[in-house]
Amino acid sequence: MSAQSSVNRIDASAAVPSEIHLPAPTAWPFVLGLGFVLLFAGLLTSASISILGAFLSVAACVGWFREVLPREHEEVVPVVPREIPIRTERPRVERFPTAPEPVRAWLPLETYPISAGIKGGWAGSVAMAVLACTFGLIKTGSIWYPINLLGAIVFEEPFRLDPAQLNAFHGNTFLVALIFHATGSTLVGLLYGAMLPMFPRRPILLGGVIAPLLWSGLLSSLLGLLNPLLESLINWYWFAASQIGFGVVAGLIVMRQHRIPTKENIPFAFRAGIEAPGLMHKKDGGEKQL
């Protein structure tokens, strides 16, 4: 053991009582457990076993209650004073060597808070819904046509509908479409919040127009392979327009939010809470130790 061992006692500053009150031992939990099991075991063996179990259970409950009411039975245990050494063989504390300053910059230096992405996503979802429903009104005279199509992405029931029914309200399809629309818009909004600061110039053009156009084109070509029936029911010009509507509105909302510094430029050791010189600051005062 090192000569520099630090030794201490956990109760060095407190008065040690001469005796301590602890709950008194009792057999009633044992008896109640046995009685309870015998009560059930009678179902497997004989009614007399259940009767015995019931008797033991009642007796145990009475005995137990009498031990805790009106006052719990306790036993007095004398405290044997002992010197319990608290020592270590490793008194020296090593610290992790960490870079005093960031050695490289992580771009972007600033970004938007998560709430900005959520707000942008929700605002964009309204814009997209308005454009999509406008398309439904113009093409079929019903706002439910695009909603039923959206529900068909994860719900097969719309494919069983005839064209007239596609323009009508269906509660379950609407619910699926609503969940899908809200979830998708929130997630894409979060993506916008994270990505827009990375576009150095014209983020609205890139994120609000070009990206939705690329996305619409990709989906149009893929959906023809994955689900030709659904692809044939979609007007892709209006689809692209609604996507652009989402992108522009979401982008504008996101960009109106205040930026915050990114944390990637703070040393990893600091973010992980590792104690290291210059990273963790000692508290002033603090609570009294043991």
Binding site: I10, V16, V77, G286, Q289, L290
Partner: peptide
């Protein structure tokens, strides 16, 4: 049987570290 003759008072997640390293207790951080 009584576990602790005196109920301890702790000031960090590693109370015995604090006792063993009074010069550098966790409670400071």
């Amino acid at each position: 049987s009584y576990n602790f003759a005196v109920i301890p008072i702790v000031s960090s997640r590693r109370p015995l570290w604090d006792l063993k390293h009074p010069e550098d207790p966790d409670s400071q951080y």
